[in-house]
Simulated scan of single mutants.
Amino acid sequence: MPRSAALASFVQSTPPGELNDVTKAIKSILGDDSSVTQDLQPHFEQYNEEQFTAVKLPGGSEEVIVSAHNTLGDGRYYDVASQSSFQFDHATQRASAVQSYVLDSNHSDLIKSLVKSLSTHTDEHYAKSSSGVYPIDDDSALAILTVASKYSPSNFWNGRWRSQYIFTPGSGTLVGFIRVDVHYYEDGNVRLLTDKTVEVKVGGSAGASEIVRAIALAEKRYQEDLNKAFASLSEGAFKALRRQLPITRQKIEWEKISGYRLGQDIGGGSRR
């Protein structure tokens, strides 16, 4: 495999919150020189845009999203809520050079209403999240993004929720996806990756509140589906894969499986 393709594979498969660790590992193998940094740069950019990396602006209190939908080119991005643009360093994931930015769109009123309604929705349902709404495709559609990340490296797990919906006023459709990525790596290496497609007809004259209600319903249904899948896994496939006795030599209480910590309780790892 060519070096560039290998680097792309390493970076693009990085779990949430672990890009710095992967970068250090790559440089420890290839050497920390300018050629490695240069080769990594385009992969960092692709990773950050696809992951909807959230960054706090200098002097700001809220995190804003970096994506392909709000790029201005040359490493600059804009945010509707703060009415600002900023420079983003994809290697360090830091923002700088904040400037005022005025949105230019025929859907400005709808976008601003969506920003407000979407923020209310995410604040209610996610512990820490960022969201954004951006005009795309020559102002013929709107990209509605949400990202919620939670990192706990001291407990060996990190996770991220991403959702993207494209609302097209001309057809009244809301099409997108929901992606969940959770990595658990204490006494093992377990990763959950999901990808759910969403398609809803809301009507071309739908207002911000109606669009966000459709989003909220789709996300609620998906969360319920995930809960059912976990319940099925613990009662079915996971139970079938177990050894007769775990490393602890104690029988597993399967009716309490949802309360176990995978690495410590089942694998016999140390407790904290």
Rank of each mutant, 00 (worst) to 15 (best):
Q223E: 12
R243H: 11
G204W: 05
V212D: 08
Q250F: 04
K228A: 12
V200D: 13
L217P: 14
N227K: 07
V212E: 05
V212G: 13
R221C: 11
V190A: 08
G267T: 12
I247L: 12
L245E: 07
D195L: 00
E255R: 14
T197K: 11
I252G: 05
K239T: 10
Q264R: 15
R213E: 10
P246T: 10
A218V: 03
A237L: 03
R243L: 09
Y260H: 01
K256I: 01
I215R: 03
G204L: 00
T197S: 11
Q244V: 12
A214F: 02
Y260T: 03
L226H: 05
K239C: 05
R243V: 10
K256A: 05
A237E: 04
S234V: 03
L193R: 08
P246R: 05
L262F: 15
E219Q: 12
L193P: 03
F230M: 07
Q223P: 05
E235G: 05
G236K: 03
L192F: 02
K228H: 06
N227T: 03
W254L: 15
G259M: 01
R261K: 15
V202Q: 07
R261M: 11
R261A: 10
L226D: 00
G267H: 09
D265I: 01
K196E: 09
A218S: 15
I211F: 09
G267R: 06
G267C: 08
A214N: 08
G204R: 06
R213F: 07
D225V: 07
A214L: 06
L241G: 06
A229Y: 08
V202K: 12
K228Q: 14
I247Q: 13
K256V: 00
A229G: 06
E224S: 11
